[in-house]
Design a protein around this nucleic acid. Structure first.
Length: 154
DNA sequence: GCCAACGTTGGC
DNA sequence: GCCAACGTTGGC
């Protein structure tokens, strides 16, 4: 049994917020249309892995909650629907291109850990999500970074 | 609204 | 296969 890995997922709260996840309890993380992010889900994310839930393009930006991967990667059905914004004609049931995982709500962080607070913590300077210009919606988090973040809102 | 940092597209 | 143009993301 490999030890759990840790991840950060970004979402614009207008699209899907931590309160939506708290309400739903569990959701499928669909709509990722970036190969590197897909590969993280397909090749990395396993049930039990820890997830930092991040709100982007809002005020305040930052980590707003914790979740757990509850199902390993499987085909993203939203890519099959021509009426869906994330439709991709290359994606078929027999040859899926895009994948998603399920995540389960754990808890909210109160108050959220703002982007400024993350940037001011020396232990987090190498965090992938803080890298200048980063646009990945799913990024890996090291065990040290996970411990540091969780310790900020025990 | 601006712009940096990419990823994607398409002409050649 | 190269690379310029274009589109998107997302912080500021």
């Amino acid at each position: 049994m490999p030890s759990p890995s840790y991840w950060l997922v970004k979402s614009e709260p207008d699209c899907y917020s931590i309160d939506d996840l708290a309400r739903d309890g569990e959701t499928y993380w669909s709509g990722v249309r970036n190969y590197q992010a897909r590969n993280s889900m397909r090749d990395g994310m396993q049930p039990g892995d820890g997830v930092l839930f991040y709100h982007s393009s809002t005020e305040p930006m930052g980590i707003v909650g914790l979740a757990t991967v509850s199902r390993a990667a499987y085909p993203d059905h939203t890519a099959l629907d021509p009426d869906d914004d994330h439709y991709d004609p290359r994606h078929t049931p027999d040859t899926p291109v895009w994948m998603m995982v399920d995540i389960r709500f754990d808890r909210k962080l109160d108050p959220p850990i703002t982007l400024a607070e993350l940037r001011s913590n020396p232990a987090l300077t190498d965090m992938v999500v803080l890298r200048r210009g980063n646009r990945l919606s799913v990024t890996p988090v090291t065990p040290e970074e996970w411990r540091t973040v969780v310790a900020m809102r025990p």
